[in-house]
Design a protein around this nucleic acid. Structure first.
Lengths: 327, 327
DNA sequence: TACAACGATAGAAACGTTTCGATTCGAACA
DNA sequence: TGTTCGAATCGAAACGTTTCTATCGTTGTA
């Protein structure tokens, strides 16, 4: 492994000159630079990232932390983040799991985007206190070194709920995420506000888990509740995955129930999977690519010491065929 | 940012003693170790990864390189890799895109798992020549520092093709991946072998792209070919994603065509998405978790200097409802 | 009592860069 | 011809660890 030292020796110059040359500094004559570059190539020189970042105190790597890798959901978001970072000269790495957290404090990465419930807010604040730059996508957190880019959960949940009401539904099931989820809490709050504003709406809240299993379970319970002579049920699943779980349960165990006719379902996220559902799931849509890109942009600004405002990702209602008029 | 030096000063010992203590070396008395650990905690000491790996020449990080992040497909595989590596004290990071490649030669990672067509084999060999350890999942590559863990493509393609033949189909469409794909080439070869072994089978090969678009396009072409009085068509899509694309095209443009009745489709991969298709897609299944774990295991062995054999992931035919008997 | 052996700790070099503050040398100027 | 200036290059320190070798003091042994 050739080092800068070997190049210096071969070229008959000092290591500082080699370093300047390799970094394209104008301090060095073009002539010398070229000679050094040629020798570097000849020796198969490759810089050592550890040495460089020990000195510069940066790695030009950004980490994004996800709760898990089962991210049919995250593809676009990651792509958006990566695209933006690439333009700014940063690398993106994707990490998951509590045991990966060390990369931030130990300075393996220059900053992090958090979409990962295994990070406790307290932990994040501790890192921010040490000067690490963070962008959180899944919680509210106020700190000079932390920026947040959040979904407009309330708008989304409001759109979804109002849609069900407009279609004439009077009894609404809300299948939430886990109680600890920020997004879920926000959505539930909005749902309750809508229900309050509209007289005569009955709201039944069921705690879900943001996974298919939660949707299946909720479907089962809803079916059990309306045992005889099913009254048209309207369900707002707080994410698409649970909605899909509900579709699955119904397809398997209750082929007599037709979605969009006997039961009405709205999701949240418009994940790719949702576009394959039969009938097409009605859901809350937003640009995941933009979300990722914006998060990256905010993080880079933080790292550069620019001031940043918290940002919000706007959402729209995407009407599929899974909601029909109530009776 | 406290360093080992600060701890040494505070504790009144040398930095070497601190280093030993922090690493739990038996050279240091328990008493001293405890005192040092206490001071380290008090000073909020966190080791510097760059300094450590400059010295030790390792980072304890493994990278897995994917062609893109749209990996509904990869979740289980990544989980398998991560689980195994965690047990061995390694971190997993996921990377994508040509501009990430530097992490390997610049020693930001101790080894890499490659499932990424943007890595050219020549490039990989160059790295292996420099001593980097690699496991490839998407090509055959012979090198002391490279191990391969490949799908049993031929077995899978054979199973799929024979299944169609057994069901009585005589005209088989094969929708391949891009011509450059190793997996695709292997599968096609096996298909052709099966066709050769069975008299009277007509094989039509269409080049696809492993994406939904390719499946849609193929569906369109197949429909166009069999314009009038559709003869029962049997299609082997070389991956599920194209099969799903085909489902989509048919659902949208040819609701008169029933899958499993007028057209018969086999996929490859058994991705999660496939389990939601209507009717359930018949496909080639294998354990992605095991694939990822095995790749990780081989890589760790390579890094430890153990000798390793190339491995193969076995596949099975998963019968859904997308293939029915031919006429 | 003297010495070997050993356990605990200290010292220092090394890993491969970057970068600040010299130094050198030739050209331009007075 | 001597001085100054600037461009090109050099030297050395520093980043924060790990680890080899040296030192020191104590204990056990002859």
């Amino acid at each position: 492994m050739a080092t800068i030292k070997d190049i210096a020796k071969q070229a008959g110059v000092s290591i500082s000159t080699v370093s300047y040359a390799l970094n394209g500094s104008p301090k060095v004559t073009n002539e010398t630079t070229e000679r050094i570059l040629a020798i570097a190539k000849e020796l198969n020189y490759i810089p050592n990232a550890a040495a460089r970042s020990l000195k510069t105190r940066e790695t030009k790597i950004i980490g994004i932390f996800l709760t898990d890798f089962n991210g049919a959901f995250y593809g676009d978001l990651l792509q958006g983040t990566k695209d933006f970072l690439a333009r700014k000269g940063y690398e993106l790495i994707v990490c998951s799991g509590k045991q990966s957290h060390w990369m931030l404090p130990e300075r393996m990465i220059d900053g992090a985007i958090i979409l990962d419930v295994t990070f406790e807010s307290e932990e994040l604040v501790r890192y921010a206190d040490r000067g690490h730059k963070l962008v959180v996508l899944d919680r509210e957190l106020s700190h000079a070194n932390i920026n947040q880019v959040l979904l407009d959960n309330k708008a989304g949940a409001t759109l979804a709920t109002e849609h069900l009401i407009e279609e004439g539904h009077r009894k609404i099931y809300a299948v939430t995420g886990p109680g600890s989820s920020y997004d879920s809490k926000q959505r539930l709050q909005a749902v309750m506000q809508v229900v309050e504003r509209n007289a005569g709406i009955e709201l039944i809240v069921m705690e879900g888990d943001f996974n298919k299993e939660g949707g299946e379970l909720a479907a089962k319970r809803i079916m059990a509740e309306s045992e005889e002579g099913l009254v048209s049920a309207a369900v707002f699943c707080f994410n698409d995955e649970m909605a899909i779980g509900m579709f699955n349960y119904l397809a398997e165990y209750r082929p007599d129930i037709r979605i969009g006719e006997h039961i009405h379902i709205v999701g949240f996220d418009n994940m790719e999977l949702a576009s394959y559902s039969q009938p097409r799931l009605t859901t809350i849509d937003y640009s995941k690519h933009k979300w990722g890109a914006l998060a990256a942009e905010q993080l880079v600004k933080l790292i550069n010491g620019d001031t940043v405002e918290h940002e919000r990702i706007y959402v729209t209602l995407l009407k599929g065929k899974s909601v029909g008029p109530g009776n």
